[in-house]
Nucleic acid binder design. Sequence first.
DNA 1: CAGATTAGGCAAGTAGCTTGAACATATGAG
DNA 2: CTCATATGTTCAAGCTACTTGCCTAATCTG
Lengths: 148, 148
Amino acid sequence: MQHHDPEALAVGLLSVSRALVDGISAGVRARGFDDVRPAHGFAFARLAPAGATITQLAEHLDVTRQAAAQLVDELIAKGYVQRSRHPDDARARLITLTGKGWACTRAAEAATADAVRPWAAILGEDRLRALEHDLLRIAPHGPLRPTW
Amino acid sequence: MQHHDPEALAVGLLSVSRALVDGISAGVRARGFDDVRPAHGFAFARLAPAGATITQLAEHLDVTRQAAAQLVDELIAKGYVQRSRHPDDARARLITLTGKGWACTRAAEAATADAVRPWAAILGEDRLRALEHDLLRIAPHGPLRPTW
DNA sequence: CAGATTAGGCAAGTAGCTTGAACATATGAG
DNA sequence: CTCATATGTTCAAGCTACTTGCCTAATCTG
């Protein structure tokens, strides 16, 4: 009876993840957004639906509020997000994507599709869907934390 | 759901990778090695077979030679590796694991097995092996680059 | 309405990388 | 054999994305 090999699984997982991040990053840059880093993508993912406060963003990214504030300052300076008054709390500020931020998000989605496409050619649609399904089953709940 | 969903696949992949790295890191710390970071593990992987030079390690980690040298200095200070004269080239130094370095490597292997074990319970042995197999098929060749 | 809590900002410090320059050894052309 | 060039490493300084510590303003609680 054949056992699985934790080392090989770990290598495969980390290699593919790294390749995915690198591929998305390259695709986003190729689409003209050359001043964003992978970490920004994780922020965009939290901001996209309806915006967020600095504190919420910090929790999502698993960094201090100060670090999140610095990241937001940078993204504002680059034109990807905007800071506006929070409708419900005068202490807080609501951070939302600008048009450029949404365009960059769409570029990241397209880049992701590009990065994944060759895998479909290698594995076939069925096994790729099985891969996705199984990964989501073993993935922890909670926010997608950055990492690169 | 006819087609695969690149976004869902990316989220699954990155979530599971992050969970794996966090799990290994926690397991290694729990085994008494609380002064190593995930990045060190990628260095150990290159050094384990037969040692390496600073330059080889830098290429493997995809950092400058200076950064690799700093990392090695740190690992020497902590007792995980040693620097000795290179047998074939008087310019180079051969970096190899110490006994403590090997012990930490074994701890990382055990921690990896621990981190992966719950997945086998969720997916079953067969699908976990299929996951490993498919990931290795789509993984790029070349060194496993660090990342955390 | 007083005290505790929460959102955010300001300042300084740090870890882990970078670039730039130097030095030692190796290699190859003449 | 000698010199020019390439390679392996190290020293020094700087940068970036974080951190900790403290501060103010607004909100919640009793």
